[in-house]
Design a protein around this nucleic acid. Sequence first.
DNA 1: GTGAAAACTTTACCCCGTAAATTTATCGCA
DNA 2: TGCGATAAATTTACGGGGTAAAGTTTTCAC
Lengths: 202, 202
Amino acid sequence: MPRVLTQTDVADFRERLCDAATRLFDARGREGFTMRELASELGVSAMTPYRYFKDKDDILAAVRARAFNRFADALEKAFHDATGAANKSAAVFQAYVAFAFGEPAAYRLMFDLSQPDESAFPELMDANTRARATMTDYVRALVRDGILEGDADLIGHVFWASLHGAVVLKLAGKLGAAYDFDRISGESFRVLFEGYLPRKRA
Amino acid sequence: MPRVLTQTDVADFRERLCDAATRLFDARGREGFTMRELASELGVSAMTPYRYFKDKDDILAAVRARAFNRFADALEKAFHDATGAANKSAAVFQAYVAFAFGEPAAYRLMFDLSQPDESAFPELMDANTRARATMTDYVRALVRDGILEGDADLIGHVFWASLHGAVVLKLAGKLGAAYDFDRISGESFRVLFEGYLPRKRA
DNA sequence: GTGAAAACTTTACCCCGTAAATTTATCGCA
DNA sequence: TGCGATAAATTTACGGGGTAAAGTTTTCAC
């Protein structure tokens, strides 16, 4: 019988590969990322990654799944560490922005990209679902505590779309100095937040 | 003396090429777009486009410039055809959305993409500036007519970021059935609009 | 040791953007 | 009417990409 890779060997290599791939995506962009450079970064031949992943898309899916999980980790941590619904909401907002600009390539891979039939990658689906949940939980908390009023899922999507828009415009270099990301996202957040405050009825 | 291309010949070919390129971008996506297929679509050899454009990026810049101009055309027409600031605003909103979903590839080329040193393409810069202006003019009209109150440029950017966010989430397939584009963008627009209504001071 | 099979590498194929070399087509002029 | 000259177009070729197929190395039960 020949040498056989243990589960751990495989998992470790996949881990190392995804780390390197994430770094390369950041350094070279989605277009500049190549299997050959990835392999050489890992010190293996160009074909070795194909023992561990079906093809480039499979690697992309794994990298995306890991990005979703890191993202969810960051938001959940922010949510749990802050106390009080209002603080939690601000902390989640900050964590979101920090992730987006700290790992722009990962952010784009998560939200800019529509891989055909993502359902073929259960790991990705799960991570996606998890990240999705963390993005509405904080709104649910705000509504539960009576700080905001309305359909928490709808409000969550509205905040999300608005913030995401500002993020991608910034990432694409579409925002100037006068109306920069902080100004626009802050203003959006403020106006939307006020719009969902409970109506003071007599 | 040999045959020499007239200005018109060159302009016509560039036009035809950009039309075909725009179609191909839509059909194949940014990754799947190739010079070779573009050339074959035009019925010329793979190298002929290089007589008329420096390289692929140069073609991309031209396609983007044309997209910006079509976009500006659509918004300006909507703006001018509607009467009254409120109607104009709604018309511009509709034209924006119609363009984004009618020509998703062109939309992405305009706002998702940051070409390095776009300043090298004056045609692109001009078209970009023009499109930018049409996106804030309608807000300026709303403020001038007293329908909204505040910094028109800031408000314009806030609306833009919010709408853009919903558009790209939809284009990336991130929105589900329950909270779809219309629901989210409509809700965002409503809440932001109300947030900028003049305060009724006693 | 030995052989069989897993892990890995080398080689090779086809597609890409595009540089360089080559061919074709059109003009003014003899 | 032919005949360069030269712009326009095509053909060929190169380096680099993803990855299939073939070849090599390594490891373990016997």
